[in-house]
Computed example of a mutant assay.
Amino acid sequence: MTDSKKVRRTSGKRERLAAAAAQVLHAQGIAQTTLADIAEAAEVPVGNVYYYFKTKDQLVEAAIDAHGRTLAGLITALDELPTPEDRLKALLNGWVDQREVTARYGCPTGTLASELDKRADGLDRSIAAVMRVLLDWAEAQFRQMGRADDARELAVALIAAYQGISLLTNTFRDPELMTTEARRLERWIDSLA
């Protein structure tokens, strides 16, 4: 994620619009984002947006799908690491790498989930499904560490710690809060092995 920069022109217009929607919605929020904002970030003429997406809600759905694809790619890369501890720590380091963006805008998925929770259109369940993928993956890592009895609780604690530190990092505009919490979580993961 970049700071409201234009989305690279390496993919098709629909994919660029979806990626731009995820990016702009993160930076500006749903209510403040216009289709023109998304078109500009995707470097697509605003009139072309309607060819792919008839409404802003369809763009929000596309942004949710983009979050899901990003997460799937991340999980694929993490799963190449040799141990569940390595995978969980790499996840933490990925979050730390995004600390500047988090300080400015919050967690991309968490902030969208929070906004969508206030609506009654079902999109909150769509973003929850994306978050559930991460939660299920984390649970699988803890199971592989031999923590079958409390794997789900540990996964919830890890994701909750990240969401909480994302909120504090954003609230105080202090990226180092995330770094400190990630180091604490690494020690916690080590203590569970």
Rank of each mutant, 00 (worst) to 15 (best):
Leu134Ser: 14
Leu135Asn: 02
Met131Lys: 14
Ser114Thr: 02
Met1Ile: 13
Leu78Cys: 02
Arg69Met: 01
His26Trp: 15
Gly106Val: 12
Leu25Phe: 05
Gly29Asn: 11
Pro82Ala: 13
Pro175Lys: 08
Asn93His: 12
Ala42Pro: 02
Ala120Glu: 14
Asp117Thr: 03
Arg119Glu: 09
Thr111Gln: 05
Asp136Phe: 04
Arg152Asp: 05
Pro45Thr: 02
Arg119Asp: 04
Gly73Glu: 04
Ile64Phe: 10
Thr55Ala: 11
Ile127Phe: 05
Leu112Ile: 14
His67Ser: 06
Gln23Trp: 01
Lys54Ile: 12
Pro82Ser: 05
Leu134Trp: 12
Ser11Met: 11
Lys118Asn: 05
Pro45Arg: 00
Ala148Met: 15
Ala120Asp: 15
Pro84Lys: 09
Trp188Cys: 08
Pro82Phe: 03
Ala155Ser: 02
Ala63Thr: 05
Leu71Thr: 08
Ala140Asp: 14
Tyr50Ile: 07
Gly106Glu: 08
Ala39Pro: 00
Gln141Arg: 11
Asn48Ile: 14
Ile189Ser: 06
Ala63Arg: 02
Pro175Tyr: 07
Trp137Tyr: 13
Met178Thr: 08
Arg173Val: 14
Ala41Asn: 01
Ile189Asp: 04
Gly94Glu: 02
Ser114Met: 01
Val130Pro: 06
Leu17Met: 07
Ala41His: 01
Leu135Ala: 03
Ala36Gln: 15
Ile64Lys: 09
Asp3Gln: 11
Gln98His: 12
Ala90Lys: 01
Pro84Cys: 08
Thr111Arg: 09
Gly12Lys: 00
Ala66Asn: 01
Leu168Ser: 04
Lys118Phe: 11
Ala66Arg: 03
Leu177Ile: 08
Leu81Arg: 07
Ala18Leu: 03
Met1Asn: 09
Leu168Cys: 02
Thr171Ile: 12
Lys13Val: 10
Glu15Cys: 00
Ser114Trp: 03
Arg104His: 09
Leu177Thr: 06
Leu92Met: 07
Thr34Glu: 04
Lys56Thr: 10
Pro108Asp: 03
Asp136Pro: 00
Lys89Ala: 03
Glu80Arg: 11
Leu59Gln: 05
Gly122Met: 09
Arg152Ala: 13
Met1Glu: 12
